[in-house]
């Protein structure tokens, strides 16, 4: 318990250092698009691929498991849309991103720590936390809504593919389903969640990297801890946000 509290204290102090004014705004604005490219744009491929496949699988599973004459045929599209909007594209996709982006951030910063590059920044008088972590957090928070939107559309495209290439459901039933009883707030909810998830992934991973010490094995441990703990925290934040925004 004491160790956990100490960790929380260290995390809060690190965030205080991170969210101070940059030493040099020009350097910050130069760094931000680079981080957005590295953490966001370079992740689009995997997001598209996973979302399409999940869209296909969810559509097929929904059709196969709801063969009930009481249920309208368009319900498949409706289920897929709401699942994507409410949970898959924001929460599950964020868990996947915690693995890819989180380990990337933790290992990058952790390597900088063990090779004394962070000490070098500190000795130069640079606020190392602010210089290294802030562009990553802001960059990922800005990219997350874009990634979530991509994921939703790709998931729906995957479902469409099932309707087009199989005879499990007609395309008109599917399209009617994804339009039926659409609640625009669900999209807003998904975007709001993605901002918070972006913050959790980047900040928790950066925390574990920043306080890594030792050698390659320790950077590996820091990277694993970053993924595990940011995933747990994502789920906890998801519960809180769902309670606050939907219930």
């Amino acid at each position: 318990m004491k160790k956990t509290l100490e960790q929380v204290g260290k995390y809060v102090n690190l965030m205080k250092k991170t969210f101070s004014l940059p030493d040099n705004w020009r350097m910050f604005w130069r760094q931000l698009p680079l981080e957005m490219e590295k953490l966001g744009i370079n992740t689009v491929g995997i997001i598209v691929l996973i979302s399409i496949f999940m869209g296909v699988i969810m559509t097929m599973q929904t059709i196969m498991n709801t063969e009930n004459p009481m249920l309208p045929r368009y319900s498949t599209g409706l289920v897929l849309r709401d699942t994507l909007l409410l949970e898959f594209s924001s929460s599950i996709m964020s868990l996947l991103l915690a693995g890819k982006v989180g380990s990337n951030i933790a290992s990058e910063i952790g390597t900088m720590r063990v090779t004394e590059q962070i000490d070098a920044l500190d000795i130069m008088g640079v606020n190392s936390a602010n210089y290294l972590i802030l562009p990553k957090i802001i960059g990922l928070m800005l990219c997350m809504p874009m990634l979530v939107t991509f994921s939703v559309f790709c998931g729906l495209a995957g479902g469409c593919g099932v309707a087009i290439f199989t005879d499990m459901i007609t395309i008109s039933d599917f399209i009617y389903g994804i339009q039926y009883a659409f609640i625009p707030y669900y999209f807003t909810y998904s975007i709001i969640k993605s901002f918070f998830f972006g913050f959790v992934i980047a900040s928790v991973s950066a925390f574990y990297g920043y306080f890594a010490y030792g050698g390659a094995i320790d950077v590996g441990k820091a990277s694993t801890n970053a993924v595990v703990n940011s995933s747990i925290l994502l789920l906890a934040v998801n519960v809180i946000l769902t309670q606050l925004l939907l219930v």
Binding site: E116, Q117, D119, A120, M124, G125
Partner: peptide, 18 residues
């Protein structure tokens, strides 16, 4: 922070930004 601008340091492993 101001003082550190007057300080240069050479690290054991060079600590260059790779």
């Amino acid at each position: 922070k101001e003082l550190r601008k007057e300080v240069g340091m050479l690290f054991q492993g060079s600590a260059l930004f790779d």
